[in-house]
Computed example of a mutant assay.
Amino acid sequence: MVNEFPQVVTIAGTDSGGGAGVMADLKTMQARHVFGTAVVVAVTAQNTLGVQDFMAMPTKLVDEQFASLAADFKIKACKTGMLADAGHVHNVVENLKRVDFGPLTVDPVMIAKGGAALLASAAIATVRDELVPLATVVTPNLPEAEALTGLKITDTKGMIAAGHALQALGAKNVIIKGGHGANPQTASDFVLLADGQSFWLSAPRTNTIRTHGTGDTLSACLTAELAKGVPMATAIQTAKGFVAAAIADTIQVGHGHGPLNHWVQPSQAVTKYVN
C-alpha cells in the first residue's frame, strides 16, 4: 500500500498572498483529499492588490525538483500554472517528457487578477506549440483562449470555435471558461471532450471581487479528481461546482481581489446541458 494514496503535483509560481498559484493549488488539493506536491517555477511578491514583483527559478533547480519528486512519489496527475517565460515553459515541457506524472492539466496563466502579466508575451507561442500538445485537458479563460488561438471570442459560437482550435493544436480535452463573458446572471463554460462530445456548464454569478485564484482553483480541483480516477466529464463538473461554491461562500481577506474559500463544502448548483 506504500505510495498508493493519490498524489498530485502543481508546477507553477507561488503567491505570497496565499490566494492563487501554488498556495491555492495545494489548498484545493488538500480539500479534495489528495496529497499535493509542487515544482516551484517562479516566486512572486503578491497580495490581493496586485503583483509587486516576481523572479523565475533557475532552470537547474526546476530540473532538480522534477527529479526529486519522480524519485520518491507516485504522482497520479499534474497541472501547470504560471510558467514565467518561454525558457521556463520549454524547460517544464522537457521535464514532463522525461517523467510520468499522469494526466496533465494545462492552465495557461497569463495575467493576474489585478492585471499584472505573469507570462512574457513571447512565451505564448511556446505554450501553444510545446505545452498545449501535451495537455490531457487545457483550461483557458476567454482572453487566454484568444491569445492561444488568434480568434476573437465575443459569443458562444466563438467559444466553440476556440475549443475546436485548441483541440486541433493537440489538447485532448478543452474547457473554455466563460467567467469573462457578458452574461450578468451566469458564468458558462464550454467543454469539448477527446471523443468529440461537448457540453456547457453554467453556474450563477456571485457579485463579488473576491475571485483571486479562480482559474488555479478550478484546474487544481480537476487535477485532484483525475488523480482519484474520476472520469473527465465528471471531474470537470466537480471542479466547476467547487469553484462556484468557493466564490459564493466568500471570506473577507485583503483589501482588493480577495481569495476564494478553499475549505468550502460544495453545494453550489451547476447546470450541465448539451450543445
Results as ranks from 00 to 15, higher is better:
176 I>F: 06
67 A>H: 03
25 D>Y: 10
218 L>N: 02
240 K>C: 11
222 L>S: 09
41 V>M: 02
253 V>S: 06
130 E>Q: 13
70 A>Q: 04
196 G>N: 11
92 V>E: 06
231 P>I: 14
261 N>Y: 13
241 G>N: 08
45 A>R: 01
272 K>M: 12
161 A>H: 04
26 L>D: 07
93 V>D: 04
197 Q>A: 15
209 I>L: 10
215 G>P: 01
6 P>W: 09
63 D>Q: 10
177 K>F: 13
51 V>P: 00
205 R>P: 01
136 T>Y: 15
100 D>C: 04
195 D>H: 11
262 H>C: 09
53 D>I: 02
211 T>P: 00
190 F>Y: 15
267 S>T: 14
238 T>M: 09
202 S>T: 14
224 A>S: 15
257 H>F: 15
29 M>P: 00
167 Q>A: 12
72 D>N: 09
86 A>V: 02
53 D>A: 15
198 S>G: 05
115 G>D: 06
245 A>I: 01
198 S>A: 15
272 K>P: 00
247 I>G: 03
249 D>G: 01
91 N>Q: 11
109 V>C: 03
151 L>A: 13
95 N>D: 10
268 Q>W: 05
5 F>Q: 03
85 D>I: 04
20 A>E: 07
23 M>S: 12
200 W>H: 09
166 L>N: 03
125 A>T: 13
49 L>D: 12
93 V>S: 03
75 I>M: 07
18 G>N: 03
45 A>P: 00
18 G>W: 08
49 L>K: 10
112 A>W: 07
58 P>S: 14
58 P>V: 12
63 D>I: 08
29 M>D: 04
15 D>K: 03
228 K>H: 07
105 T>V: 15
31 A>T: 10
272 K>E: 11
154 T>L: 11
180 H>T: 10
31 A>D: 05
215 G>D: 08
158 G>R: 02
138 V>W: 06
254 G>D: 11
138 V>G: 02
34 V>P: 01
67 A>R: 03
104 L>N: 03
143 P>H: 14
150 G>F: 13
82 M>I: 11
191 V>E: 06
235 A>K: 01
188 S>Q: 11
55 M>Y: 09
213 G>D: 07
84 A>Q: 00
255 H>Y: 14
100 D>G: 04
77 A>S: 10
167 Q>E: 07
